[in-house]
Structures are given as structure tokens and as C-alpha cells.
Amino acid sequence: MATEPGMKGALVDGASAPIVVSHGANWRERARMAANDLAETRQLWPLVWTLSLLDIRLRYRGSLLGPFWLTLSTAIMIAAIGFVYSHLFHSDIASYLPFLSISLVFWNFISAITAEGSICFTQSEGMIRAMRMPLSLHAARVVMRNILVLAHNIVVIVVVFAIFRIVPSAASFSILPACGLWVVDAMAVCLILGVFGARFRDIPPIVASIVQIAFYVTPVMWSPVMLMHRGISAILVKWNPFFALLEIMRGPLLGHALEPTAWAMALGYSAALVLLAGLVFIHARPRIAYWI
């Protein structure tokens, strides 16, 4: 053969420290391996980023507007619901639409994370069974993908704010830590639901219907202020984790003062979520490849 393409051999010599895969006799050993898994995912950050980017690009490949369909469909939905519900609730569109745009955009993120998180491992079956890679990478991919979707949708909020000439107050800076908290929570949710979704195939539809119900009972479309005089149950608002998480985003953007109770609740629920995610992932990580 005159030309032997690629015969010059290897491009790169792979090299790595020895990997020991044991059956994880005790809890400490399993926790160590789970921590390694997360650390490897962090090292593979460029891969997570590219996978997420390609996921979105693939979804809209060949379409005219491409990913801007995300922005456009959200805008249409918010405009339509905004006009109808501001009449139903007898509220001023100038105050309702900004509220609704923030609520819906962030709720869409929650609902996508729960839906896609519960299939994050089953959907990556091909990759998981083909090579050894950190399993938390598949959860991180779902989170990253939805952050990108969220970034497209935030444009709608910006436009609504511009139309109604709303200038966010200085308190809005508190949404930065709130965003950090959301990312951590999203990762935890994906790990928990992903594990359960891999083990029990009924989980994804169950999660979908629970989130659907949560959407109606949580003040997403309606603000608790609107319906206060109707004696809306305190439980829906006071102890609702979705409400607390939404409120730390929505409150400051709408110019409300920082709410220590909402923050305390959000932090408390997040801590519980992260703890649960840790336990579930440490316990189930070695088994995921068998379940899918």
C-alpha cells in the first residue's frame, strides 16, 4: 500500500493512572467512587458543553429559525396567556405580564429538568454501555442543555421588561446566588430522578403528572397576592418548595424586597435535595449500567 492513511499510528497516547473498579464493599468506598465520578465529569466539562450544544442544534437542525423557535414559542405562549389571564384575574397587564414571563420561563426550566432528568440515564444507554465514563456526566448534560434553553427564553423576559419600561432594582443582584442554587438543585434533581427512572420505568410519567399538578397549585400563573382574599390555602404557598425557589428569582426582579423566609425555605429544601441526591447516587451509581 502506497498510502496508508492513519498508519503513522496513534495521534495521542492515552495514559492514565490505574483505575480500580471494585464491588464497593462498604459505604466509604462507594462514596469515594461517587466523588470520583463527579470529579471526572468536571474534568470533562468541554464534552458536557459540546453535547448540550449539539443536543439543541440537533433538535432544530434544518429548521429556518433554529433554536430561536425556543424564544419565539415562549414569547407567543406568554403573550397569549398574558392577555387572557390578565382579564380573568382582573389585573393590569402592565404588572401581570412581567410577573407571568418570569414565572413561566423559570417554570419551563423546572418542568424540563424533571422530565428530561428522569430519563437522563436511560436515554444515554448507548454511551453508558459502550465505554466507561462518569455517570454524572449524563445528568450534567441535561442541566447544561436546559440552561442553554433558559438562556434563549430569558430574552422574552428582557423584551417584556423593556416594553413595560421596568428597571430592575438593586435587589435584583440577589438572583445571581439564586441562579447558583438553581443549578445545584437541577443537578441533584437529575441525579435522583435519573437513578429512579433507570430502575423503575414508571417514574418518568409519574414525575410528569406530579409536575403538572404542581404547576397548577403553585403560584406560577397567579400570584398569591391576587387570590389572598379567597383564602388560598397557606400550604400551597407557605410550604411549597417550588414557590420558594420561584420567589427568590421572581421577587427581586419584580422589585420586591429580599425575602428572608423564601430564601430560608429555598436553602432548606435545597440542602435536603442535595443530601438525598448524594445518598441515592452513592448507593445506586454502580448499578445504573445494569438497569438501563
Partner: peptide
């Protein structure tokens, strides 16, 4: 290292590649 064993241990010293599935984890 894809299936972690139920008992025993596996020590992999060296960069490992597995050509097991046709699809190779490709999308």
C-alpha cells in the same frame, strides 16, 4: 469498567478502549 462487579475487583492500568457495541456510543 462499564459493569462494576458484584464481587471482586478489576484493576485497569493503562488507557483502555472498548470496541463492544456497533454504535460505539455514537449519536
Amino acid at each position: 469498567g462499564i459493569y462494576e462487579p458484584m464481587a471482586g475487583s478489576i484493576t485497569i492500568d493503562g488507557a483502555i478502549t472498548a470496541l463492544l457495541d456497533q454504535s460505539q456510543g455514537m449519536n
